[in-house]
Design a protein around this nucleic acid. Structure first.
Length: 474
DNA sequence: CTGAGCGCTAAGGAGCTTCC
DNA sequence: GGAAGCTCCTTAGCGCTCAG
């Protein structure tokens, strides 16, 4: 996972509980205890202010209550809007607005409305966009999805692209917000949008202060997050390594060493004796090397002797390392037991949260990312008709060559793959023709050719339809 | 001949949807 | 709410190709 994405996730999880401190601590003051104390006091002040304001708004009556509700739901709505715009044309979207002030009647109405369709189908809802005219009237735009779909598929640019069914978001733990979503620990949470916890107190509009440098504050928190995340990752990694070591050791002792010791004790006695001998020999070697080094040092000192000290020290340390490696190397290899070797190994997969998805799908409007290049290649082949890696490279190479030779139209006639963006650029770079050939020019020619293709295909389809309607004329 | 690189397939984990 | 079935994705293992 890239650091920016990670920080975004973290900040998105933390942000609902964050209170904006009144004073702006500088970056250099981050690590001091006083700054923490300061933050605490300011947050307490802020809380007190908020509670006071809440009381006041409650006393004002129900009319203001609704506005307060609107205010509280506003950040969530903003987050929802942001998310929906970020995700583009995501088809499956399970999110419902969390309104803390929703009455029981409303809930009942909503539940009855949704009853017929348990899973929220936003396809129909996103089509119905309500806008406000300058007169203040609500105007509902019913987009004709069928027409949109037709248009989009008939455009030559989209014709040769396979529509993806859904986008996989980074699989991390998400916080729930929706009452309708199950907050009982069920597993359906990986690819759903960010949700807020059920028992979360209503969100308050922060008291913005003019003197506060929110930019600096943002970056201060950002770097704090980064440090924390790095720390967590390091600890997790070391834990994972240790667990792996433990597992290997356990496996080795359980399935390899103990049974063999019981079955052939004499062999192990012999091995232990050999190990002792090897250790003694190594120690003798070490002593000899040290003696030689000391002699060399004395010789150097007698001549000029300022620098060699460091080198000898280094040598010694290297030797020590070597010796330690040697002793480790003498240990019998930790092979897996035979039954484990022969039986198909149980895959110890990383969990979705542990996978660092650094391989992004190059196609526009896809935006999926994968944990390995193989997975990405598989995705490109299956979802985008991009072929496998070698096929893509070959095709890009031939296209570039054809472009140079002036026979690109002929090559494009035989084109049956949907090359990802950047593939041609790579081929151009590989051929060392960066200045001679531009990817945009090739792409322009490809799109022209595709338009010709689509026109020809549409004429064929229409003629076929006519012949189906009037078989006599055909 | 050998090892690296790549692709494919099966196994299995994780999450989503549907149904009871 | 939970089980069953499904999809998607990752990974181990195997085979193939090709350069050295």
């Amino acid at each position: 996972m890239s650091p920016t994405r990670r920080s975004q996730n973290l900040s998105s999880q933390i942000s609902p509980h964050k209170k904006s401190p009144t004073k702006t601590p500088q970056l250099s003051q981050v690590n001091t205890a006083s700054s923490i104390k300061e933050l605490k006091t300011t947050s307490q002040k802020g809380e007190a202010q908020n509670t006071q304001e809440q009381k006041e708004s409650e006393s004002k009556g129900s009319g203001n209550n609704t506005s307060a509700k609107q205010n509280t739901s506003q950040p969530i709505q903003q987050a929802y809007n942001l998310r929906s715009t970020q995700s583009g044309d995501r088809k499956k979207l399970n999110i419902s607005e969390f309104n803390p002030g929703t009455s029981k009647e409303n809930i009942r109405e909503k539940s009855e409305g949704v009853k017929a369709n348990k899973t929220l189908n936003l396809k129909s809802q996103t089509k119905q966009i309500t806008t406000k005219t300058p007169n203040g009237k609500n105007v509902t735009n019913h987009h004709n999805q069928n027409i949109d779909d037709k248009q989009s598929y008939e455009s030559p640019e989209v014709r040769y692209r396979f529509a993806t069914e859904r986008i996989n978001l980074p699989r991390g733990k998400v916080v729930r917000c929706s009452r309708s979503s199950s907050a009982n620990g069920s597993r359906r949470n990986s690819q759903s949008p960010v949700k807020l916890p059920r028992n979360m107190p209503p969100l308050q509009v922060p008291n913005f202060q003019d003197k506060m440098d929110y930019f600096k504050e943002y970056w201060r928190l950002y770097f704090q997050n980064e440090i924390l995340v790095a720390d967590i990752e390091q600890t997790a990694h070391s834990n994972y390594k240790n667990l792996k070591k433990i597992y290997n050791l356990e496996d080795y002792y359980e399935h390899n060493l103990i049974p063999q010791v019981l079955a052939y004790p004499h062999k192990f006695q012999h091995r232990i004796n050999q190990q002792k001998l090897q250790k003694q020999q190594q120690q003798q070697k070490l002593i000899m090397q040290q003696k030689q080094q000391q002699e060399l040092l004395q010789q150097m000192k007698s001549k000029d002797g300022s620098q060699p000290q460091q080198s000898t020290n280094n040598d010694q340390s290297n030797n020590n390392e070597g010796s330690s490696q040697g002793t480790n190397g003498n240990a019998p290899p930790m092979t897996m037991s035979k039954d484990r070797m022969h039986k198909r190994k149980k895959h110890l997969r990383r969990t979705a949260a542990e996978i660092e998805r650094d391989f992004t799908c190059p196609y526009a409007d896809c935006g999926k990312f994968y944990g390995s290049e193989g997975s990405l290649n598989l995705h490109i082949k299956i979802k985008h008709n991009g072929g496998n890696k070698t096929e893509r490279e070959k095709l890009a190479k031939t296209l570039v060559q054809a472009y140079i030779n002036g026979s690109i139209n002929r090559e494009l006639d035989q084109l049956d793959l949907n090359l990802p963006p950047g593939a041609l650029q790579k081929a151009v770079k590989k051929a060392g023709l960066v200045q001679a050939v531009s990817e945009n020019e090739i792409l322009r020619q490809i799109s022209n050719q595709l338009q010709v293709h689509s026109a020809a295909a549409s004429t064929i389809i229409t003629s076929a339809n006519i012949s189906n309607i009037n078989p006599k004329t055909a």
